[in-house]
Design a protein around this nucleic acid. Structure first.
Lengths: 236, 236
DNA sequence: ACCAAAGGTGTACGTCGTACACCTTTGCGG
DNA sequence: CCGCAAAGGTGTACGACGTACACCTTTGGT
């Protein structure tokens, strides 16, 4: 009878449920709202209970990274290494875009988890399978930097000054004028989407385009060096 | 007489002294040791006294970033835009290397400070002066990403597993063996410095070389696109 | 001589991660 | 069926942290 008097027998926690709840909470409420206490609350458990499943908060974050890395598609069987790598990295990008906090957490990790190592190992393998030398591959990985993860850190994620959508348009125009005299080059760049006259202030940038632009520029560079048998003793 | 009974009349704090002390403390003890309390202690003052000079800790960090940005050399009068930009960015890199915490703090900023905007504006101006279109310059800035600041975030700043210098060499060899079977590509890459047989484990990478490799690959890519009159409607 | 402002103090609150001792449930070998 | 160890969950407590708020002290201008 003790079995069914209470609403639900509460299946015991485990590391996986903890990690997935943490990911869900970060997705919903933002990474800054994820504390051991809030996560415990979410799981109807007292904070200290979590420590039976993760050693500490750092390891919780490590685990969350591995959950996200697990969402990246396995290598596709493309003909050429360049497009295979391109696809894989764009898949990583999609995974990271689904979890906006993930890039910041990845950056903050101090040592790599097994999942991360697996992913890096496999990307390196794709370069090697394409015939690039270990040396060139090494430099290529460095050149990609965070782009292997599908993100580039924003110089400033939000906007300069106060939020762009507040205040009256008059004050906003004045602010733009100030900006234009103090930072003319920035304003020119930001305003210059080729010629679709969408709105006065050019709605920011097409992140996806920017990402692919840089990615392709780098991959093409690697290919060019590869074809001409470049080795790291030379400047190009 | 009250003037000289006490050891020193303690010149009053100001924003600049606070910022410079914060930079010095972060340099000496690491950014994680910088708290409002520790900084106040350093200045022989009670924590709340700092709030008369900086609004809160975020603004303190903003101010510290501007101090570092102020250390970047002004543009040199190079003949061509490419080497001018290259020199400037390498100067930024030197500034950031003097303050190992700075890149992490820059990444963490949520909106740009005036000093940061000045720097970006001036780098953009250098591209424009070289004749690149606003559009290509825009993409170039995105492609550079954190490299304009002279850093690329490390995939893993330290080493995998425990510190490399601890434990007996036997256990270390075993660990390397494990790594080699689980992550063969990573191990191959890390071990492959062309052929200077320095030591079995190839002392990591030459960061400066890796940085310049990627920087030059990108700058060369921009130049190539610029010469062929590329516009962002095309894939290259 | 006075007074406002600028600069510095002290106390207190709410949040965080987590150490440590304790209780409860569970599954297994006798 | 019993008992008992391990696994899982609890409660309390500590020492950080950033910072609100009320207060005192010094100082420069009239």
């Amino acid at each position: 009878m003790t079995q069914q008097t209470e609403p639900a027998r509460r299946t015991p926690l485990n590391r996986d449920r903890v990690l997935r709840a943490a990911v869900a909470l970060a997705d919903r409420a933002g990474i800054e709202a994820l504390s051991m206490r809030s996560l415990a609350h979410e799981l109807n458990v007292v904070p200290m209970a979590l420590y039976k499943h993760v050693a500490n908060k750092e390891q919780l974050l490590d685990g969350m990274v591995d959950v996200i890395v697990g969402e990246i598609d396995p290598p596709a069987g493309d003909a050429d290494w360049k497009s295979a790598i391109r696809r894989r990295i764009l898949s990583a990008r999609r995974a990271l875009l689904r979890h906006p906090w993930a890039s910041r957490v990845i950056e903050s990790r101090t040592s790599p988890t097994p999942g991360v190592l697996d992913y890096l190992n496999s990307i390196i393998g794709m370069f090697r399978a394409g015939g690039l030398s270990p040396d060139l591959t090494h430099h290529a990985m460095h050149a990609l930097g965070s782009r292997v993860w599908g993100f580039t850190q924003e110089l400033f994620p939000a906007s300069p000054g106060p939020a762009p959508a507040d205040a009256d348009p008059q004050a906003l125009a004045a602010l733009l004028g100030e900006m234009a005299t103090r930072y003319p080059h920035i304003v020119e760049i930001v305003l210059a989407r080729p010629h679709d006259g969408e709105s006065v202030v050019g709605q920011g940038c097409d992140d996806q385009f920017e990402f692919e632009f840089a990615l392709d520029l780098l991959l093409d560079g690697f290919e060019r060096l590869h074809r001409q048998g470049w080795t790291s003793a030379e400047r190009f």
